[in-house]
Computed example of a mutant assay.
Amino acid sequence: MADAGVPAGPFDRAMVIFNPGRAGMGTRIEALQRELATDLPDLSVELLPTEYAGHARALARIEAGRGAPLILSVSGDGGYNEVVNGVMDVPGSKAVCTVIPAGNANDHFRSLPARTLSGALTEKTVRHIDLLRVAFRSGSREQVQYAHSYVGFGLTPLMAIGIEKGGKGKVLELVSVARTLRRLEPFELVRDDGATAKFDSLILANISRMAKYGTVSESQYPDDGRFEVVTLPHAGLTKMALMTLRAVTLGLGHQPSVRSYAFSTRNAVPCQIDGEIVHIQAGTHVRVDSAKGALATV
């Protein structure tokens, strides 16, 4: 690993960000409070329930701007994405983040080496992992967002939409994926050198697993300053189905890794960032860079 961890200074407080409307969250928060009281008895713990979409980012931004908080996101990938972006909104922040899995997929948590919160707090080490810096530019306007796990175009966001509409549960979700494959339309990208390519799927991955069942890379540690590029050129339904089957069984194996990847969209295309869907307009320039060691975590 690029960073073996450095001794952590004492956190001045712990901030727990969570969605109180999620089923079973009350019990989960009570258990977390007991765990923190046991492992860090002198640490002040404050609960920060969210009230609307995007609120977790606003809360994390406020807390990251003062002191040295330990910010615990009790959430899935989307909620943790908000927290990570809130911290990244504050340059030079001393905040340390971690996620307590409480979502549907929890791809980020599942892709990292197994560890318990108790063990991480006992070790008192802070590690720095990479993020994906995603910049969308249309005309003179640029929007920047960070991803802790992956950015997907084409098949992956449509799979997420299909799963959301089709219902939860492994069988229902796999049926929804199969239905999604039949509706997929290819999209065309233009590289900065002018070359064009037509894809069914493009994934830029900072982790090894995504969408609960798929192994897209053999990379285990998101701290090497690179990310994997998983492409499926337009080839029709059969090849897409075979790729999806391989991802959920054997995995896709080793993939090429890069530090940066850039292109412009020829047509409108859905994009998935850590589980959240963003619709990209035609003519948008997209640049993804590895932000090495950008996130402090336990």
Rank of each mutant, 00 (worst) to 15 (best):
N19L: 08
R22K: 15
R22D: 08
M25Q: 12
M25H: 08
G26H: 12
E30Q: 15
A31K: 14
A31L: 14
L32P: 05
R34S: 14
E35H: 14
L36P: 10
L36T: 07
T38L: 15
L40D: 02
L40H: 00
D42V: 05
D42Y: 04
L43H: 01
L43A: 03
S44F: 06
E46N: 10
L47N: 04
L47C: 04
L48M: 13
E51S: 14
A53H: 15
A53L: 15
G54M: 12
H55V: 07
A56K: 09
R57Q: 14
L59R: 08
R61M: 10
R61V: 05
E63I: 02
A64D: 00
A64K: 00
A64L: 01
R66L: 06
R66D: 06
R66Y: 06
G67V: 01
G67Y: 02
P69D: 04
L70C: 02
L72E: 00
L72F: 03
S73I: 00
G76W: 06
G76N: 07
D77F: 09
D77R: 03
N81L: 02
E82Y: 03
V83S: 05
V84P: 04
V84T: 06
N85A: 04
G86Y: 03
V87N: 01
V87I: 10
M88K: 10
D89W: 08
D89G: 11
D89E: 14
V90S: 04
P91Y: 05
P91L: 04
S93M: 03
A95C: 01
C97D: 00
V99P: 00
V99T: 11
I100Q: 11
P101H: 13
G103Q: 08
N104V: 12
A105E: 10
A105G: 07
N106A: 08
N106I: 07
F109H: 14
F109A: 15
F109G: 09
R110M: 13
R110P: 00
S111T: 13
S111H: 11
P113G: 09
R115H: 12
R115K: 13
R115M: 12
T116R: 09
L117E: 03
L117C: 08
S118T: 13
G119I: 02
L121I: 10
